[in-house]
Amino acid sequence: MGAPIAPVTVRPDVRLETAPMSPVSCDTCGAAVEARKSSWEQTSIQWHAADVERCLERRAAMPPRIEGTLFAGCVSLRQALAKAVERGDLPVLADD
C-alpha cells in the first residue's frame, strides 16, 4: 500500500559544517554526549540511546502532568557543559 520508499537519508544541519559538535561527559553519571554552544544562552545536546539510560536524574524524574511528556534535562550535565566551556573543551561560538 505504501509507495516505494526512497532510500532513507537525513540532511545534516548546515551549521555543523563549519562548527561541529564537541564530546562532553557528565561528571555524575558518565553519560557521553555531543554538545554545541552558539552562545552562552544557547545550547544543543545530542544524546545516544545508551547514554540516555545512564542519566541518573532522568531516572529519578517525577512523572509529568501530561503522561509521556519528556524529562526536561539533566542539571549535572548542564554543570559539566559549563565546566567544559571553562576548560576550553566546548567552544562558545558567539565568543569567536
Partner: peptide, 26 residues
C-alpha cells in the same frame, strides 16, 4: 527508522541566566 531519528536531542535558549552569572556559578 534510523537511531538518529529517535535519539534524544535537546536545544535550549536560556535568557534568564546571563553569561556573567553563569560564569560566576561555574
Amino acid at each position: 527508522v534510523l537511531p538518529e531519528m529517535t535519539e534524544r536531542f535537546e536545544f535550549e535558549l536560556d535568557m534568564t541566566r546571563p553569561a556573567e552569572a553563569w560564569s560566576q556559578e561555574v
